Amino acid sequence: MKKENCFYLGKIVKKYSFKGELLAKLDTDEPELYEHLDAIFIDLRGNLIPFLIESSQLHKSDLLRLKLEDVDNESDADALLKSDLYLPLELLPQLNGNKFYFHEVIGFKIKDEKFGEVGTITGINDSTAQALFEVDRNGVEILIPMNDEFIVKVDRAQKTIMVNTPDGLIELYISSS
Rank of each mutant, 00 (worst) to 15 (best):
M1I: 10
M1T: 07
E4I: 13
F7T: 05
V13A: 06
V13M: 06
K15C: 02
Y16L: 01
G20D: 00
E21V: 00
L23T: 01
K25Y: 14
T28R: 10
D29F: 12
D29W: 11
D29N: 08
E32V: 05
L33W: 09
Y34N: 05
E35P: 01
A39V: 04
I40N: 06
F41S: 01
F41A: 03
L44E: 06
L44P: 04
R45V: 07
L48R: 04
F51E: 04
Q57N: 12
K60S: 13
L63G: 04
L64N: 07
R65Y: 12
L66T: 01
E69W: 04
E74K: 00
A77C: 01
D78P: 00
A79Y: 01
L80N: 01
D84G: 03
L85P: 03
P88N: 01
P88W: 09
L89Q: 05
L91G: 04
Q94A: 10
L95M: 08
Y101A: 06
G107S: 10
K109W: 15
K109A: 10
I110L: 11
K111S: 14
D112Q: 06
G116F: 07
G116R: 10
E117H: 11
V118W: 10
T120D: 13
T122M: 15
I124K: 09
I124W: 13
D126F: 10
S127H: 12
S127D: 14
S127L: 15
T128K: 12
T128S: 08
A129C: 05
Q130I: 11
Q130Y: 09
A131E: 13
R137D: 13
R137M: 14
G139R: 11
V140Q: 14
E141L: 15
P145F: 07
N147M: 10
D148T: 08
K153L: 13
Q158W: 14
I161V: 12
M162P: 04
V163N: 11
V163Y: 10
P166F: 06
P166S: 05
D167Y: 14
D167S: 09
G168A: 10
L169F: 11
L169R: 05
I170G: 10
L172F: 14
I174V: 15
S175I: 15
